[in-house]
Amino acid sequence: MKRLGTLILAVLIVSSLVVGLGFAKTPPKIGLILATGGLGDKSFNDQSFKGASDAAAKIAAQYGVTVDDVLDYVEPNDVSEYEGYQLQFADSGDYDIIVCIGFDQASALETVAPQYPDQKFVIVDMVVNQPNVASVVTNDWEEAFLVGVAAGYLTKTNIIGFEGGMEIPLIIGFMKGYTQGAQWVNPDVKVLVRYVGEWANPTLGAELAREMYNAGADYIYGAAGKSHLGVFTAAEENPNWYAFGTDVDQAATAPEHADVIVGSGLKRVDLAVESQIMRMANGTWKPGIYSYGIHTEFGFGTGIAIGQLDVNDYIRKSASEVKVPCELILKLVEAANGIKDGSIVIEH
């Protein structure tokens, strides 16, 4: 009996070693389909890419390979290419997980996911109800709310601006959160709202920003992809004009504008993407809806980068060269706490 037990144990050990070695030879592969606009937006796409790269780096280190062996990514030109990429990635069978960035991939994924029931998908910014899809959503409005608090607090003219890329639900959500945040801290504030109509035209973005600045706005926030870069350029033209960045600390990603970028809303897409990939790598991945944000089960995923200190999980330090008063930081902490405990409800 004893010998048999030893034998079984030995077989188990050997077989697990073999399996382990075999597993070690083929690291999991990640397929990343970025949102239209591609890398270089210094914001959403870059952030998602960072999350995937970070995860890939960890996996690569574990298996002793390079990041390139683990991560393949594509930058679609347009909405119509999403389905093709999803199909290509899924059909190749090479990828352990396919991460789709951007709400507008949902329509395509609804068609593709059922065709490959064994393929794991992650979609960011949208819910797709399929048994093989994990949907990652973020409470964007919380980020916008916090920026709104900062802008509403800092404004001397009581006019602040919002510049959206296009009038779509996602951006409207930002606009609403921003407006409510500003009015929460400063009921007299007036918010100007403008849309560029294009995501990659910073020349027009700058012109719209100038228009709002000249109309009295002294702080402008918004979400307009590459067009938003124009806001920073415009802000440089007058010492009283300031801007806020979106989704990442843009004072760090666009350091030449660190003197006008007061702070940035934070959307930790990188954390969300990274955690999804690591779950896959650890074998704990499950489909379903994952909400990230202050007022969620995770309790992280949004915030604001402002000031020179990491105050808590939500108020992070920024590379900005603009000094902000301590009272503002306190206000922001108050707002974040209010969002967390539900005493502040943001309509979106």
Partner: peptide
């Protein structure tokens, strides 16, 4: 002119 209006190039800037 387009470049100098923002100090960088983007493909959509002439639009």
């Amino acid at each position: 002119f387009f470049f100098n209006s923002v100090g960088r190039f983007t493909s959509g800037m002439v639009g």
